[in-house]
Design a protein around this nucleic acid. Structure first.
Lengths: 182, 182
DNA sequence: CACAATACGGAGACAGTCTCCGTTTTAGCA
DNA sequence: TGCTAAAACGGAGACTGTCTCCGTATTGTG
């Protein structure tokens, strides 16, 4: 990659991070280009779709999500506490920008999406937490990790979509009660 | 309302029902106008926003949702079966068109939305089912109906958003397990 | 330093939203 | 029925956002 290309790539990303935070993931891409001081052509060459740009912004999530999962497991807390902690971290990650959670829900089961690989990493992290607890015998029989992830993403999506400030905690508590052994 | 106005109103609604089903709730409003044989001005006069149009299409949901809730209660089934049945009906209603569930999630806690009143009716129906079961002593203490509705809407939203065909049943089972008395 | 390869960026085609306002239709009334 | 004010129509067009094409500029390598 040429030096000027790299420069613009980084500039666009930094600007996108700001604009998406200000205005949500539906913000105008041309505006991002303008504020980054590049032409729209440049933006679209680096990021052919909005999704590709959002995806690039999530670069470092992947690692953090995985390490959050490991930390939760390592804590050795009882199932309910461990799950709540893990779920809240999970939701924090996928609601970084308004509208992000919904996009991730869409990408989760769509192998064609550029975000799909990251969703798989998140799914993997989640699976590890669930399986760990399952091995400790603290979950109901038949709990499916993919299913749990969808459910938690749904909670994130509601919170993300809603105009009002929604408390996710009470919803997560229901989910937790629904999967830990009675 | 003048006769020609009524005629156009109905025509637009009928066309919107078709187009939204074909293309989802993001379809072009001008296209709906064109296919309905009216000018865009006419469409926007009757339905100032997309949301107002979607809302008008949901006209008859309200009644059906309420009667579904009554039917569920009248069935006298045990809590898990009654809830599953009710939740599935609920989700059927709010996923009538692709993208509808997400719009409803947004409207649910936004009194300014034209859909807000309908959401309240749905919320009321849900509350009745939950409270009925609570009175029968079959729910865990502290279950909050509004919270349950958000959770179930989240499930609907995930299923609606996802490219793949998601089974809602397993998710609903988790929710049910999370609210019925252990 | 020359020159190919690479990248830039903005003009503009296209699509969707929404409004304004001159024209047409309707309904009530003489 | 014929007239008229009020109501409604509808389409031209302003505006905004997406995305592409291609002439121009920048880079880095021999």
């Amino acid at each position: 990659m040429r030096a000027d290309a790299r420069r613009n790539y980084d500039k666009i990303l930094a600007t996108a991070r700001i604009v998406f935070t200000e205005r949500g993931t539906d913000a105008s891409l041309d505006e991002i280009a303008k504020r980054a001081g590049v032409g729209p052509g440049t933006l679209y060459r680096h990021f052919p779709t909005r999704e590709a740009l959002v995806d690039a912004l999530m670069q470092d999530w992947t690692d953090r999500v995985a390490s959050d999962a490991e930390a939760a497991i390592a804590s050795g807390a009882p199932a309910p506490a461990m799950l709540l902690d893990w779920f809240e971290h999970f939701i924090d990650h996928i609601t970084l920008h308004r509208g992000a959670a919904t996009k991730i829900c869409a990408a989760m089961d769509d192998p064609a999406s550029p975000m799909y690989r990251k969703c798989r990493v998140m799914g993997e992290a989640n699976r590890r937490v669930i399986e760990h607890l399952d091995e400790r015998g603290e979950l109901r029989p038949g709990v499916d990790a993919a299913n749990v992830m969808r459910l938690v993403s749904g909670v994130a999506s509601v919170a993300d979509t809603s105009r009002a400030e929604i408390e996710v905690r009470p919803m997560l508590e229901v989910v937790v009660d629904g999967i830990v052994r009675a």
